[in-house]
Write a protein that binds this DNA or RNA. Sequence first.
DNA 1: AGATGTGAATGAGTTCACAGCT
DNA 2: AGCTGTGAACTCATTCACATCT
Lengths: 208, 208
Amino acid sequence: MDDVSPLTLNRLSVYLRCLRRLQTEGVQRISSQEMARRFHLSSTQIRKDLAQFGEFGIRGVGYDVDALADSLHGLLGLDREHRLVVVGMGNLGSSLARYLGFNSGSFHVVAGVDKDPEKVGREIGGFVVRHSDKLEQVVRETRANIGVLAVPAESAQENYEALAEAGVEAVLNFAPARVTRDPRVPLKNVDLRIQLEELAFMLGEDGE
Amino acid sequence: MDDVSPLTLNRLSVYLRCLRRLQTEGVQRISSQEMARRFHLSSTQIRKDLAQFGEFGIRGVGYDVDALADSLHGLLGLDREHRLVVVGMGNLGSSLARYLGFNSGSFHVVAGVDKDPEKVGREIGGFVVRHSDKLEQVVRETRANIGVLAVPAESAQENYEALAEAGVEAVLNFAPARVTRDPRVPLKNVDLRIQLEELAFMLGEDGE
DNA sequence: AGATGTGAATGAGTTCACAGCT
DNA sequence: AGCTGTGAACTCATTCACATCT
């Protein structure tokens, strides 16, 4: 299993979501074409994407919805429980803690830290905010394995490093900043402003 | 100006952010190489990306930071004011309203609606929540031009259509659902679960 | 000299077309 | 007959290499 492009990976998540929906509708088998039609995907691409990980279908028939959903679930690492620690409990951070906390499934927010003593001690989304100085200890105690960066752009780098140091295995960065990666700690950026700016550009382009 | 790939577009946003940072540091001129080095980008790519929109640099010298920032700012449509209406004022929606409200710049959250009468009337992030039935009226009154979908997956489609109907020019979708596009109303999906699942996969892959 | 802007070369990602299984 | 899985063709994106300008 060489390495998988982020594009493929995103699509696998999408496929899983589509399959979940089919499950709720009681669909048991589906062909790539039918799935493509229903969810506006490409049937060839579905097959190519899946082919990277094995043969999940039955020729002449299609895919078993439950079986494929289970396979993708496992593939994406969702059979492990993932424990998130949020760094920066400002507006964005506390919103994320509350929001992601609900989403349960395989992801749970287990801790939050902030360097502002004012915020330390508050209870948000099922845990008590701790001070950033205690990050390493917090990670150890809660066995958090994913860090969520919700700090201002200026302090993104240092907090990423602190998370890496504290022992998390991956970081999701919401700060609008380019962070230099530690090769051992995968990083994904989620930048809301970029998304908005992309939309803004589209508006300008073709007029109404 | 044919049409621009989303990848290029995202990078333009990144470049703009880098330039803003250079401005705060008082840097007046920068070469593509220096910029690439500082922010972990590719110098060729910077030049190729910019070349799609004109000639912004001075050969032998580099780019004027202020001038280039202004150009990108305009290119991305940030000299217009964009007015956002949030649909679905649950956990995610109200968080977004508060968060995006702060981020000022060219984007302002001017309204929010929800179909739950319980939520109608609350004040969040500078406006009073209105009922979803009034969406068209709200859009007209506030001159909102971008819709933000923060509803459950099941109702994403109908609310996208309602937004299109009500006259917004583009939609940012936070619901984890595949929405069928209206060709007149550009749609961008932001799916936090996909991001988390991508990270989860990376963890599984290489072990620690 | 030094940096931009750009055709040409390479690489990545997607689609086509069909062999092969059920 | 119908649908999967996949090499081959194609399209899109990135990188290279250099002519061009200050």
